[in-house]
Design a protein around this nucleic acid. Sequence first.
DNA 1: ACTTAAGTAAGAAATATTCCGGATAATCGT
DNA 2: ACGATTATCCGGAATATTTCTTACTTAAGT
Lengths: 147, 147
Amino acid sequence: MDKMVTSREELTRRLAAFEEKCRRRGLRVTNQRREIFKTVASSRQHPSAEAVFLAVRQKMPRVSLDTVYRTLASLEKMDLLIRVGTPEKERFDGDLRPHAHFICTNCAEVYDIFPPEVSYENPTTLACGKVKYVHVQFKGICKRCQS
Amino acid sequence: MDKMVTSREELTRRLAAFEEKCRRRGLRVTNQRREIFKTVASSRQHPSAEAVFLAVRQKMPRVSLDTVYRTLASLEKMDLLIRVGTPEKERFDGDLRPHAHFICTNCAEVYDIFPPEVSYENPTTLACGKVKYVHVQFKGICKRCQS
DNA sequence: ACTTAAGTAAGAAATATTCCGGATAATCGT
DNA sequence: ACGATTATCCGGAATATTTCTTACTTAAGT
C-alpha cells in the first residue's frame, strides 16, 4: 500500500502496546490481528478497510475481508486506532498522537495537520459525557482537486 | 420529528437566504426543496437523511427518499447546511454558527457545544487546500449510554 | 495435548446511498 | 396567460459497504 513511514522503534513500541492490550482483554494475539494492526500503525495513508484488506493479503493471501472489518472494529474498541469519517467511506488512523485532519470533500483524501490547535476537555464537553478523542477536521477542497 | 426550536424571524431569514442562493445558482425553488430545507433549518436534532425523509413525508406524502438525498447534497453545496459524520450514518445541521459537536460513539447521538474552541484557518491548513468548515468533534460515550 | 477463541469460505442480509426511465411542474419567452 | 423547455421528482431497482450465518478448520494460551 505504501512504504513504511513510522520509525522501527516506534512501530515496535506500538506492537508491544497492541499485544499488551489484547492480553489484558483476554483477546488472542493472532497473526491476522498483528498484521492488520501493523498495517494501519505503519501507514500514514489513513487506509480504508478495503485498502487494509488488500495490503494484508500481500502477506497473508487467505485472510478474509470479514476478519479485517471485525479486527478494525476491535482495535478501535481497544483504543489502538481511530476512525476518520470521510464523505465516501470510513478510513483508519493508527497514529494516536493528537493531531487534526484536513479532509477533501471532493476526493475524500485525508491529510494530517500538526500540531493540533484545540483545547481538550472542558466543562461543556464533560457535561455531555466522557471524551475519548477530539477530532478536528478541516473540510474543504484540497490543492490537487482545485487544479 | 421535533418541535420548532428556531425563532420564526430567524427561520424566515434562513428561508429567504435559501431562495436567494437557489436563484443565484439557477436552481428551481420547489416545494420539496423548501420543505426539506425548512425541516433541517428548524431542527436542532441533527437529523439523518432518513429522519428528514420521515418528517417531510408528514407534509408531502409523495416525496421520495432519493429527492431528500439529492436535495441535502445540493443544500450542502450551497453552504446552507453542514454534514456531521457519525459512527453510523451522516447527520445534518442547519445551524451554521461556529460550534462543536460531541458525538457518542455508542448511540451516535450528536450534542451541540458552544462556544467553539478552535482557531480557524492557519498556515498549515492553507497548505492543504481551501478550508470551508472546521468540524470539531469530541468523540466519546455520552452520559445516557454510561448509565 | 486440550480447550476453545478466532479465522475461513461462501453466501446472504442489512443498511445507506445512488442511479434510471418516464412523469411532472417551475420558469421563461412570447 | 400559454405553451415550450428542461430541471426536478418519483418509484423501483441497483450498488456499495459492512455485518451476519453456518459449518468447518486452525492455532493461541493453558
